[in-house]
């Protein structure tokens, strides 16, 4: 099934998605990697709010290449997904606190994230890893940037207006489906067999 989502995405639309579905997102997508997740959660602990509202929006595990054009406006050069597994240590807390609708990345995520997706109505959309120019094509405008000075280009928050950003494959849905984890379990079985059968 193919779905075109508009942010902020209503929770029932998110709960309607199934692992294996293709999604495209139009609206607001904010980049956030290791440092930005940490900082946003630290702010929350201090009772402060980050400079952008993640609620209902896409959170993109991405450290883009950005360049200022002649008019001094930021433009995207390349913006593919980074390895999401690094964010597994705090993604669940992030989802719980900030309630994004779609986590965008590559390589899939684990049990903790899947549980938070189930509880709070969020999905994980896998974008093809390395396909940074395909991704850039869906980004129509750089609306804002925060924490650039402090965290640097790859780690700061870039706020993008996107149009039909995709295709992404839903690999974690709100019903307990986790495609990458399923493949990982099969790979582990094959690994054990191959190791067992290996000859000298």
């Amino acid at each position: 099934m193919e779905h075109h989502l508009k942010t902020p995405v209503p929770e029932e639309e998110i709960r309607n998605l199934r692992a294996g579905d293709l999604i495209y997102v139009t609206g607001t997508v904010v980049t956030a990697r290791d440092e930005a997740h940490l900082k946003a959660l630290e702010l929350n602990e201090k009772g402060e709010a980050p400079p952008v509202d993640f609620k209902g929006n896409g959170v993109f595990h991405c450290g883009p290449i950005m360049q200022k054009d002649d008019g001094g406006e930021w433009r995207v050069v390349a913006a593919g997904p980074t390895t999401s597994a690094r964010m597994e240590i705090f993604q669940d807390e992030f989802i719980k606190v900030y309630r994004p609708s779609v986590i965008i990345g590559k390589g899939g995520m684990g049990k903790r994230t899947a549980k938070a997706c189930r509880e709070y109505g969020c999905v994980y959309g896998a974008f093809t890893g390395g396909a940074a120019l395909l991704a850039a094509r869906g980004i129509k405008k750089v609306r804002d940037v925060f924490w650039l000075e402090e965290l640097g280009m790859p780690e700061c928050l870039w706020v993008y207006d996107v149009e039909d950003f995709g295709p992404m494959i839903v690999t974690i849905d709100t019903h307990g489906g986790n495609l990458t984890a399923d493949v990982g379990a099969r790979v582990a079985e094959r690994r054990d067999q191959l190791i067992e059968e290996m000859e000298g």
Binding site: G63, A78, G80, G130, A132, L133, L134
Partner: peptide
């Protein structure tokens, strides 16, 4: 397709250079 766009536009194929 991404590799093709990169070559034609002389742009980095991946943001992680």
């Amino acid at each position: 397709e991404n590799v093709n766009i990169a070559r034609e536009g002389s742009k980095p194929m991946c943001q992680d250079t």
